[in-house]
């Protein structure tokens, strides 16, 4: 059924451009990581982009060296503390509501206007990550809305859609969402025990099927031949606490060390993000 509240365009469905790969020489250089395995990409964080909101922040993760690979661009606004809707029951603490949405032009595939399950999923993980950082009982009977627009997803334009990279892209997106939301919350003046930041680590197989997998931080799916597993971690550095851990992939239970090293690398990535976050916040108040 057509959405009468929007301009819907032609009645017939349109097709995203199909590229003629036959005539062009193979563009894809062998997949190589442009950074050492322990290095995250450069990050740019700024608060106060939405002056009409209580707090806001903008995060951009550097475009990697490979041309055509876009970096992540996120814009976050925080509204609140505000009164809860009249229908809401009494709450002795602040009620957190998170909303993550890709812009229609954020990814290779044009996104719809309604949130899809993956976006809802991101929202839920983000809420879990932030709930552990906020001192919720300082604000009784109130709510706060955290809204993130993913202006540009972390996706490779060149790779075809069939690779199933979406899952790993979501990890990177969540890591960015957590960091940008923490900056916006601090800008809004909502009490937090610590600055929470997100970090991603992955187990990748770079040289063929039989090679030994390695753990890298801040993975870009297009830079690796195959990603076996990845985890996104929300970590509080001063408290040394993990508020949210999201693991996806395929890891044998026999090798518990692999799992721990994945988590440790995730924490390391999160610490890197935290340094940027703290630096940005310090700049804000100066």
């Amino acid at each position: 059924m057509a959405d009468r509240r929007r301009i819907n365009g032609p009645a017939g469905a349109t097709i995203p451009p199909v590229f003629d790969d036959v005539s062009t020489p193979k563009l894809k250089s062998p997949k190589t990581r442009s950074r050492p395995p322990n290095t995250t990409r450069k990050m740019y964080l700024k608060t106060g982009v939405t002056p009409s909101a209580s707090g806001s922040a903008y995060l951009e993760i550097e475009t990697s060296a490979t041309p055509g690979v876009s970096g992540l661009k996120l814009s976050c606004s925080v509204h609140g503390p505000r009164s809860l809707p009249r229908s809401a029951p009494f709450s002795p603490h602040i009620v957190l509501s998170t909303h993550v949405k890709y812009a229609p032009f954020a990814t290779k595939q044009r996104r719809g206007y309604l949130r899809d399950p993956s976006e809802r999923d991101l929202g839920i993980h983000l809420e879990a990550a932030l709930r552990g950082a906020i001192i919720a009982d300082r604000w009784p009977k109130s709510g706060v809305d955290i809204i993130i627009s993913i202006v540009e997803g972390d996706q490779d334009r060149e790779t075809s859609l069939l690779q199933g990279d979406e899952v790993w892209d979501m990890m990177n997106a969540l890591g960015g969402c957590i960091t940008v939301a923490a900056a916006a919350l601090a800008d809004a003046g909502i009490d937090c025990v610590d600055t929470v930041a997100g970090g991603v680590a992955a187990l990748v197989q770079d040289a063929g099927e039989d090679s030994i997998p390695t753990v890298v931080v801040d993975p870009i799916p297009s830079e690796h031949e195959k990603i076996l597993a990845a985890c996104c971690i929300a970590y509080l550095p001063t408290r040394d606490e993990v508020t949210n851990l999201w693991f996806r992939g395929d890891l044998p239970t026999s090798d518990i060390d692999l799992y721990t090293s994945l988590v440790e690398k995730g924490i390391q990535a999160s610490k890197n993000a935290n340094r940027v976050l703290v630096g940005c916040l310090a700049e804000t108040i100066e």
Partner: peptide, 28 residues
Amino acid sequence: VPGQLLGPASRYQPGPGTHLHNANLYAS
């Protein structure tokens, strides 16, 4: 910034914008 150590609880009283954790005061 939130989470930053301000000092031990034996020296200060917590005011607005701070919280107490493990006998230390941190900014919130």
